[in-house]
Amino acid sequence: MRTEPIISPEGRPIPVARPRHWGRLLAGTGAVLVFGWLVLLLVTNPNLDWSAVGRYLFDGQILAGILVTLEISVLATAIGLVLGVLLAVMRLAHNPVLRRLATLYIWFFRGTPLLVQLIFWYNLAFLFPVLVLRVPFTSVGVKWDTNEVMTGFTAAMLGLGLNLAAYFAETVRAGIQAVDRGQTEAAYALGMTPARRMRVIVLPQALRIIIPPTGNEFISMLKTTSLVYVVAGHDLMTNASQIYKSNNLIMELLIVASLWYMLMTAVATFLQGRLERRFGSDAVRLVRRSVTGRMFLPKVTA
């Protein structure tokens, strides 16, 4: 907007009036009123005991749940990322068996509800009462009771991790395909095998494209872990629900859990922003270098 006065033909400075945006003012005021009214309804609700929210916000069980939620999120994301890269490489392999197996995996884990998968892993003992890891045809090995291994925690970690891998594989595949095909040819021309080209040339560049979306996956995972409460994973949501089942302060504890989820999301969003600044410029350059319109970056949601 212009800040200096306009000089008239006679050489006199004439000030410029501020433009008025009546439409904007009206829409803004209306939105604030509606929003404020909704907040007021919640805050002043006589059935809501705000002192209970304050009391439980730093409750030991809640804090322990936050720790478990973070642990599950980090471990499941790690499993998802590693397995996702493996699946993406399999999907792009020349070997038709590997390619179809990866497709089948992705179809299965994207095609069944996450809730079903969590309950499945938790109840694995019905199918395999004991888990045995043994050198074939010998007695050397270890044996576990499935019910001891498959706690809510491990079921959650496995279920969420394997599920994320299926989604993440598509992101990685797009990243791999975004790396300029000419560099692959240059790698071959220098005498690299396909595997070495993938490891030394393609993956390091694909990862720069993939890293920013992983932030989104992690943020999404923080909240998806709340599903773990069906298998009693002792995460934030499970613990909050256990408290409200005993004292019936359902809304208050949901608010407590939500506040913590929002805080974790805010912190993760901040970290993601830094991650993107670190790798983003590289990613943009790599994408711009790619040749064809085949290239796309997958849309991700927080």
């Binding site: 300029d180 000419g182 071959y188 220098l190 005498g191 095998t193 070495r196 350059r285």
Partner: peptide
């Protein structure tokens, strides 16, 4: 095999129109 191709190409240098340097 791809490995045999790789061994063969070690002895042949190639320069491309679009340079194809490793961007990272």
């Amino acid at each position: 095999t791809p490995k045999r191709f790789a061994a063969f190409r070690r002895n042949i240098g190639m320069v491309f129109q679009r340079f194809n340097l490793f961007a990272h």
